[in-house]
Design a protein around this nucleic acid. Structure first.
Length: 573
RNA sequence: CGGGGCGUAGCGCAGUUUGGCAGCGCGCCACGUUCGGGACGUGGAGGUCCUGGGUUCAAAUCCCAGCGCCCCGACCA
């Protein structure tokens, strides 16, 4: 491709709209432009990269035995009502009434649709295993779109769905997809980490997220350097924290009411009473489906709503609103305490080790000191109810762990029969018995492949693409436009590279050398072939490596072979 | 939805405090000189100062209402 024949609007300065590095660079390098919050145009260069990412995904899916199809983005909502997810998903699903008054959704994901299809077409165990996938635009009305394309309301997802005769066969299908995911992200040059995760509303028991550590990541992962354990902090188990069970200890005096005017947060209370947050029991009032529960967490810890929700087997689990808190505790938010509460009390294990703690007094501007669990109030159930911290140990090996932010680029789920049973996706087994298919589903945010690569591969000059994703593998840069010999040399190399199957761009713009260098670095082509007068007079051209930063002088007459071999080497990794 | 910030030429911004000709840098167009890391000179084009209303002789600037965007939080697959 000739630069003058394509459309690559680069920017010298950071756009005002962007904060994240990847977002700034995608806009500056002429990859995307924003239309509205969470809606982006992919310019030719960005689209080309997106297609390369899609093709890597497609190749690995095909290799793993998955079969591509395309489902509609328009979905009647009744399938969603059948599985109960119509209510679960809420306003995230974009819905409208068509001219006949039927409610239609723009697909945020396709479990219902694919399961419906399979329920109609699959009859026999002989039709299984079956893994189908598509690469398609998904729509989600996100509460807060963020960081350019990292969280957008319209994005391209590769979603695959496996159907098997039994759990054992499903494990095999799952493993195939899992391995394919590893190959995809390796080929894309993305430093990914597979972690254990919570299936959330997708359902099922086990899931893995494929995470890319990054400051702008919206999720957090805990990983152990010793044994390699890695999990989302949503699910990472907290182990061995209570050195001594002090429940019911009589050491302290009776609870004493203390005045804490205006101090409603743990921070306020600890400052006011001159105690540490670890001396405070915070009491959170939650609504789990129709039941109200009080959750006790040590002041320096964070409640883990995923663990709580799962432990209580609740469908809906959310913090109670102010009105509900007043109704239960008789006091404003921020002054709740377990003493005298009549609802179910769920406490984190670490609260067991607390004695003479501070809690809310269920009275405005009042707290209680000298409160000890077991002595002053009873706990209905002790569970692991908090988020793991860097001070905790690896739940697997007891080693120390680190916690990092990460971007989720893929998620795989073992779904079981949640969808197949309700939607009737079953088959006749060998003995003629009707059984539901065991399902798995597997998603990749294709756009996020671009964002997370850029986020983890850039320098002060711009993006650094691996050859697998780079919009062009090589950029040929003639430094002068009016030197016929030089231009001919550059054109010759360009054409020869193209004929040799190299994806090459020639910067034939009437721009000065500096501009061309800056743009080439900004966009991040892995190889720059520079044709300048100085080196050409010695019969050489310059080959710059964007990744290593090395510059090499190569004989002009063997430049094409040299570059082609180099690219071929890079393609193999 | 709560908190904070922003909205002025294609892009990045100043001007708003204290009302008085619509500005700067980059980019763009023309010509000339340049030509190995965002060249230089001369000349030029380009504006709904986010929108609507109000105050005023006069509003980018003050007041009211709304819209949009970004960040933090809440939420989330």
């Amino acid at each position: 491709m000739r630069w003058s024949n394509t459309f690559i609007p680069t920017l010298k300065e950071d756009p005002q709209e962007a904060e994240a590095i990847s977002h700034k660079l995608m806009v500056r390098a002429g990859l995307v432009r924003r239309l509205a919050a969470g809606a982006y145009t992919y310019l030719p260069l960005g689209y080309k990269i997106l297609k390369k990412a899609e093709n890597i995904v497609r190749e690995e899916m095909n290799k793993a035995g998955a079969i591509e199809l395309l489902m509609p983005a328009l979905q009647p909502v009744d399938l969603w009502k059948k599985t109960g997810r119509y209510d679960d998903i809420g306003d995230v699903m974009i819905k409208y009434k068509d001219r006949h008054g039927r409610e239609v959704a723009l697909g945020p994901t396709h479990e219902e649709i694919i399961t419906d299809l399979v329920s109609r077409e699959v009859r026999s165990y002989k039709d299984l295993p079956l893994t189908l996938y598509q690469i398609q635009t998904k729509f989600r009305d996100e509460v807060r779109p963020r960081f350019g394309i990292v969280r957008s309301c319209e994005f391209i997802m590769k979603d695959a769905y496996s159907f098997d005769v039994d759990a054992e066969a499903m494990e095999k299908s799952y493993k195939k997809m899992y391995d394919a995911y590893c190959r995809i992200f390796e080929r894309c040059g993305i430093p990914y980490v597979p972690v254990e995760a919570d299936p959330g509303m997708m359902g099922g028991t086990v899931s893995h997220e494929f995470m890319v550590p990054s400051d702008i990541g919206e999720d957090r992962i805990a990983s152990c350097l010793a044994c390699g354990y890695a999990a989302s902090t949503e699910v990472a188990a907290v182990k061995g924290v209570v050195s001594e069970d002090k429940t019911g200890a009589e050491g302290g005096s009776a609870p004493e009411e203390v005045s804490t005017p205006g101090a409603s947060t743990v921070e306020d209370v600890s400052r006011f009473l001159k105690v540490t947050p670890a001396d405070i029991i915070k009491t959170l009032i939650y609504v789990a489906d129709d039941e109200t529960v009080a959750v006790l967490i040590r002041g320096d810890h964070e409640a883990n709503e995923t663990k709580l929700k799962n432990s209580l087997k609740a469908r809906v689990f959310e913090l109670a609103d102010e009105k509900k808190v007043e109704e239960i505790t008789g006091a404003a938010m921020g002054f709740s305490g377990p003493v005298g509460l009549s609802v179910k009390i769920i406490a984190d294990h670490s609260v067991r080790g607390m004695v003479n703690a501070v809690t809310g007094a269920n009275e405005k501007d009042k707290h209680l000191s000298n409160v000890t669990p077991g002595k002053d109030f009873d706990v209905t159930e002790w569970i692991d109810a908090r988020v793991i911290t860097a001070d905790d140990v690896c739940p697997k090996c007891g080693g120390s762990i680190t916690i990092k932010n990460a971007i989720e680029i893929g998620h795989t789920f073992k779904l079981g029969t949640k969808y197949s049973e309700v939607l009737g996706a079953g088959f006749l087994d060998k003995s003629g018995k009707q059984r539901p298919a065991i399902m798995g589903c597997y998603g990749i945010g294709v756009n996020r492949i671009l964002a997370s690569l850029i986020e983890t591969s850039n320098d002060k000059n711009g993006i650094i693409w691996p050859v697998s994703l780079s919009p062009y593998e090589v950029v040929v840069i003639p430094l002068k436009k009016d030197d016929e010999g030089l231009v001919n040399e550059a054109e010759g190399i360009y054409k020869a590279l193209k004929d040799n199957g190299v994806d090459v761009l020639i910067d034939d713009r009437e721009k000065t050398a500096g501009v061309k260098f800056k743009d080439a670095d900004l966009i991040g082509f892995p190889v720059q072939a520079v044709i300048g007068k100085k080196s050409l007079d010695q019969g050489k051209i310059e080959v710059n490596d964007r990744i290593s930063g090395e510059k090499e002088l190569v004989d002009a007459d063997r430049a094409v072979d040299y570059i082609r071999d180099r690219i071929e080497g890079m393609r193999k990794g």
